[in-house]
Design a protein around this nucleic acid. Structure first.
Lengths: 72, 72
DNA sequence: AATAAAAGTGCATTATAGTGCACTATATGA
DNA sequence: TCATATAGTGCACTATAATGCACTTTTATT
């Protein structure tokens, strides 16, 4: 997943749960500014930051085998 | 997945592919020091760094729903 | 349209990730 | 065992992520 997709997934999930950025920031312990930056596609969060955010949304960061076979 | 698990997955994958840290660093464009730090569990890489490393190993960073139901 | 809530942005500061270099430690093979 | 390859670490520096604050823009809602 590219960064944009990860961002979209986080945003979609947050919105689905009807949580505001402000609330998510509080719940996750990540600064509001940081969250805003990330969601607006401007950021390059650290793994820890991403995990904190994902966690609260019931998501988890993982690694999976890429579409094996052929050259993208 | 906790950081340690992600690290283990990267290391296992790198070793399975018989690639040295040095080679992986070169292929991924990530500094050797950074890679060493990450693999030895000392780091908190940025998403971009993690993606660069994962990419070369045929892995991708993703978000997935956590074990729904009940309290971990 | 007016208001209010939520999201986005500029600026400045602090904390820390990324990096190279030199060196140590450990694993591996002859 | 000795040599060599590979992995780990201390130090120092640069780049940038994380953050708060104040303000603007956008998105509902009435």
């Amino acid at each position: 997943m590219h960064v944009e997709e990860l961002v979209e997934m986080i945003k979609a999930r947050r919105e689905a749960l009807q949580v505001t950025q402000e609330t998510l920031a509080e719940l996750s312990g990540v600064g509001l500014r940081t969250l805003k930056q990330f969601e607006s596609g401007k950021g390059n969060p650290t793994l820890l930051t991403l995990q904190k955010i994902a966690d609260v949304l019931g998501l988890e960061v993982c690694l999976k085998l890429k579409n094996v076979s052929r050259n993208k």
